[in-house]
Amino acid sequence: MAQYGVLAGSKDRDAVETGEVAGQIALTVAFALMGASYNATWDKDQVIRATVTSRPVSTSDVQLRISFERIVTRNNGLSRAEDLTAPEFSSGFFEKVRAGLAMGER
């Protein structure tokens, strides 16, 4: 993928929150006692994905772009994606790139 200036990376995180699971189970039991059914669902897995693209803008400069998304999968298999747009994500990334480049120059 790097040949065309793109890199993708991901990191898994457990998304299960005890409070949400307990609440959903409590609702299921309450509905069952009333003779009704309730489909208990909760966040199960999440993966943070980063996509980096680059484009040469001159013989010595490259333009870098990074985006972060979080994909949360619920226990019923359905998933949702959320953009992570907090500046800390991208500024943290570019700080590391800057530090890496500085180390390379030494």
Binding site: M1, Q3, Y4, A8, T51, S67
Partner: peptide, 14 residues
Amino acid sequence: IETMHDLGYRITRV
């Protein structure tokens, strides 16, 4: 690739 990234796609395979 650049256009897909701009449009909000996560690149899954090249």
